[in-house]
């Protein structure tokens, strides 16, 4: 295989920051620390094991919950963002830039801060409940629910859905739409037969870019889901920084999650045809 010399630094970069960490994760996942027999107290040695992996099975409900919530959030995101992206893409220069800026602006603020903001809104004594209180309604149980977690995911990952959709939709030329109308297509037909099929690559990218971070998030569920909505991300976090300190198990869960995400994505990519993923934005 012939590679360009200029690609060399990038190859080193990839090896250091992607391949090596991945191998480390795999190493941790398939090893365990056991006490050395007859050795000093606390002295351990590393042994190969698949116990970590098989233990992950215990957390199947957490995995299912993570995938379900992330999937719901992704679908809601798509439904909300598709029309937004379309409107932005059809706008004129200044209008288009302003709307895009508005989409990006929240991303400049700290992720934690934004999620905190939602906490104060959703709380029992939060703004929303106080507003409903004015009409003698509520208080509603909003925070610490699955809905709150989904809301947090939708809110935080929305730009990742809008941007790839927008970038693919701006490539749809006005004359293509005019041609469809000229050939007898009314608004609905134009959408179903031209705009939708042409924006599928963007839909695919958007779904990937929302689903993958959503399925492994841990901050959102902790802040908006209380203790009741432990997600797979929280579980991994606990193994490294929490009380249940066990990096080997944490690595094993990560590996399983990775395989699951890859599976989800490859199944998902079977839908439609094997079009090139040209909606990729980043």
């Amino acid at each position: 295989m012939k590679t360009k010399a200029t690609a060399f630094p990038y190859t080193i970069w990839m090896v250091i920051f992607i391949v090596v960490p991945l191998l480390l994760v795999a190493y941790f996942a398939f090893t365990a620390q056991v006490p050395v027999e007859g050795g000093l107290a606390g002295e351990t040695r590393t042994v190969f094991t698949i116990d970590n992996i098989s233990q992950v099975g215990k957390f199947a409900p957490v995995l299912t919950r993570s995938i379900t919530l992330a999937a719901i959030a992704t679908v809601i995101c798509l439904i909300i963002c598709y029309p937004i992206a379309y409107i932005i893409s059809r706008g004129g220069g200044v209008y288009q830039r302003t709307l895009l800026m508005l989409v990006m602006l929240p991303m400049w603020m700290n992720f934690l801060l934004r999620t905190y903001a939602w906490m104060t809104l959703l709380e029992k004594n939060g703004l929303i409940n106080r507003f409903f209180g004015l009409f003698g309604l509520g208080p509603f149980e909003m925070i610490n629910t699955g809905g709150a977690v989904v809301l947090g995911m939708v809110y935080n990952y929305m730009p990742f859905m809008i941007l790839p959709l927008y970038s693919i939709m701006t490539k749809i030329e006005v004359t293509t739409i005019e041609a469809a109308r000229d050939l007898g297509a009314d608004g609905l037909h134009v959408f179903l037969r031209v705009i939708l099929p042409l924006s599928i690559p963007g839909v695919k990218t958007g779904i990937t870019m929302v689903f993958v971070p959503a399925v492994s998030t841990f901050i959102i569920s902790r802040m908006l889901g209380g203790g009741g909505y432990l997600l797979i991300g929280d579980l991994i976090d606990l193994q490294f920084l929490g009380n249940a300190y066990n990096p080997n198990l944490g690595a094993a869960i990560s590996i399983v999650l990775m395989v699951l995400i890859l599976l989800c994505m490859s199944i998902f990519n079977q839908f439609g045809d094997e079009e090139e993923m040209e909606g990729t934005l980043l």
Binding site: E178, D182, G184, A185
Partner: peptide
């Protein structure tokens, strides 16, 4: 509106549907 007129147009830059093949374009 254009879709109800009994005229058809050949556009300057053709404006073919990129997601359809030749047959499907004509079939539209």
């Amino acid at each position: 509106p254009p879709h109800k007129r009994k005229v058809n147009t050949v556009f300057q830059k053709y404006a073919l549907f990129p997601h359809l093949n030749v047959y499907e374009n004509i079939e539209f």
